[in-house]
Amino acid sequence: MITPIEAGLLVFIVATAVMTALLRDVLAAIIVFGGYSLGMAILWIVLQAPDVGLTEAAVGAGVMTVLFLATIARTTRLTGLEATTVDVNLPAAALCVVFVLAVLTTVPALPAVGAGPGENPAFGEISEYYVEEAYDDTHVENVVTAVLVAYRGFDTFGEATVVFAAGVGVLAVLRRGVFE
């Protein structure tokens, strides 16, 4: 069942997300979004995903916020924070509400939060295999690491390629040579 800390985090996350959407001032939105990411990172840890939590804190709340701030620094004059909100565009909002409702119709069919093997098909033979055999196969105790580098190493290779592609892409877009 939901714990108070989880509930509090979820409320915080939704609230910061809404604020991000409504704040007209980009800098304010970025700062709130940084809070949102941090909330997410804490939520991952509460949900027993420490690897994801750490990554989210470093990458989501850290790197991402820096990137946003750097962008802002290069593109807009900083005139101090403003708390004005954008005008809500009703047709767009209605479209999104419809989308949310459509997604919500699938939610009751999902396994309940915290449902274990038997009720949650995701806990199938693959996840069982990982937990049981990872150490024997790879001699790494952290199963997440084992999966990351061994079983799904090709994904990780892809992930590295994504970062490389993004780096080259940024250079290309900003028209910088590598050594210029």
Binding site: V59, G60, V63, V144, V147
Partner: peptide, 15 residues
């Protein structure tokens, strides 16, 4: 563990 692995990748893709 598997979804965690996927999301680690996805976070990097996202950034």
């Amino acid at each position: 563990p598997l979804p965690h692995v996927l999301i680690l990748t996805a976070i990097v893709v996202g950034v």
